[in-house]
């Protein structure tokens, strides 16, 4: 395979699973592994990983966050690449660990080193792996939600769209106000549920107006929020992580859908 020649068969990628994928939707993790392997990488999943610490960091508990950051830095110190199927978790490592650990110069240097090796999955597939999803099929119209951390902290916008453009049968419909938050915001959505409700409703109206039958995004947090609200409203739109569609794994029940039997 030419990918393997390009990257060298020995190049190893460590998957940073993210706690939400680990707990709620392991199929996203398998989709990520599948895509990375298809691009010619060897994938490892270090067992000592749990959470990147973002909930503590964003709640102002930098001591707890720094403890978790140090654990992540140790766990992933040996890998050429660290890839996460989430813009939010990847941005925590890339854009925030160095500042979080500014009081410890040695750890801060290690954080910078990890930040240089860490990638959000879509960006990695498009810019490092040069993957094309030519042999995947998905019949249907989709709307794509840009998650805020990925969009603004990591510049992820065209990469997933480019990858999706290779999928046979897939028609992408852009929504209005596509750079506006869906109202998830981590702990925000449970601290201020009514404000979050208004925000997610505005987002769902924009999705509905595209006429798309499937919603895709690169972050499970946003997807759990939007899918949960769509089910509450009785909206007939199915939600998947973009990696699941790219990996041809959309036969799995959509987020919030039950097993047939």
């Amino acid at each position: 395979m030419n990918e393997q020649i390009r990257h060298g068969a020995g190049t190893t990628v460590a998957l940073f699973v993210t706690c939400l994928v680990d707990l709620f939707r392991p199929s996203v993790g398998f989709a990520a592994v599948h895509l990375l392997e298809r691009a010619g990488f060897r994938v490892e999943v270090p067992e000592a990983q749990t959470c990147c610490g973002q909930p503590a960091y964003n709640s102002g508990d930098s001591i707890t966050a720094a403890g978790l950051a140090a654990q992540v830095i140790r766990t992933f110190s040996e890998y050429d690449y660290v890839v996460a199927p989430s813009g939010s978790c990847a941005a925590t490592i890339i854009a925030h660990y160095p500042d979080l650990l500014r009081h410890d110069p040695a750890l801060q240097a290690a954080a910078r080193d990890l930040a240089d090796r860490t990638w959000e999955l879509m960006r990695f597939l498009a810019e490092v792996a040069d993957l094309e999803a030519r042999d995947t099929t998905f019949e249907g119209s989709v709307a794509y939600h840009d998650s805020c951390s990925g969009l603004r902290e990591l510049g992820i916008r065209e990469q997933p769209r480019k990858l999706l453009s290779g999928v046979h049968g897939l028609r992408l419909h852009e929504m209005e106000d596509r750079d506006v938050c869906c109202g998830f915001g981590g702990t925000f959505c449970v601290k201020y549920p009514e404000i979050s409700e208004r925000m997610v409703d505005d987002k769902l109206d924009a999705i509905r107006d595209t006429g798309a039958s499937t919603l895709l995004s690169g972050d499970l947090g946003c997807l759990l929020n939007m899918a949960g609200r769509m089910h509450r409203r009785g909206m007939q739109v199915r939600a998947y992580h973009v990696a699941e569609v790219l990996a041809g794994m959309s036969d799995e029940p959509a987020i919030g859908e039950g097993r047939k039997r």
Binding site: D22, F30, P193, S196, L224, N225, R229, I255
Partner: peptide, 18 residues
């Protein structure tokens, strides 16, 4: 209070991966 909670698929990724 405002949305359904999608159910976990049933296995953690870590255990499914091992």
């Amino acid at each position: 209070s405002v949305r359904d909670l999608p159910a976990p698929q049933g296995q953690t990724f870590q255990s499914a991966w091992r």
